[in-house]
Amino acid sequence: MSALLSVKDLRIDYLTSGEPFTAVRDISFEIQLNEILGLAGESGCGKSTVAYALMRLHKPPALVRNGHILFEGRDVLSFCDKELRAWRWSEVSMVFQSAMNSLSPVMTIFRQFYDMLRAQSTVTKAQAQERTAQMLEMVGIPADRMHAHPHQLSGGMRQRVALALALTLKPKLIIMDEPTTALDVVVQREILQEVLRLKDELGFSVLFITHDIALMAQISDRIGIMREGKIVEIGTASQIVTAPKHDYTRSIWDAMPLLAQRPEGMAHAV
């Protein structure tokens, strides 16, 4: 079976006043159907640049110099504006790091759903309300909160709203760029379990980007480690955890403060 998304020799430059800076250096990877691929690395390694380029959200001075992005065999980089509009959100969606910035502060939650639904098809307000209610309940938010503005919700709830927005049009791939970094660990765990539950229920692939490699190991099927624009190692989650091959992967593990003793009982009981 062919991959859902395949990236070949992708190279992205940032144009500067001097020499162009190459942020992503000829990377290649694939995401299969229903797979969670993790992309880990420190700030500035190019992981978010990859995410933005996959959605064609990169803007000058970022420039794709080389390579292909194939989504179900179609070349994403050659889409015209109309194709791009139809493709975004319905087939690929994105959850950004800070939901405070990805939701509009002056619109109610419902308005943001309505905008997206209207852009994709003709819907009545009543239909849109019904769909919004359904999506909010799915991520564990009472449906009557749809008339709230983003600032009336907690950080965790806003991130759930962002997730619900990303899932509404049943995309095949969701790109999550540090979706839980701004949240505390308990909320983070709740949201990630929600993602996994929805994935079982709806079936979609995820590109999961974070610098927290321990968290990534908990939910990803495969993990790619990025450094200075290159993927230095890619393998199954268990291989990256138990038998990292590259020195850099080992040094990331060494730099992580992990709990000395594992929690007993509860973590395994739930």
């Binding site: 660990v185 929600e194 079982d200 190991a217 992990l258 709990l259 929690p263 739930v270």
Partner: peptide, 21 residues
């Protein structure tokens, strides 16, 4: 709860357990 929520690379999360929430 706080202790159990710390990411532990040896523990795989699954979608099936509503227990934690």
């Amino acid at each position: 709860l706080l202790r159990a929520a710390v990411p532990d690379p040896a523990l795989r999360l699954t979608g099936g357990d509503a227990g934690f929430a």
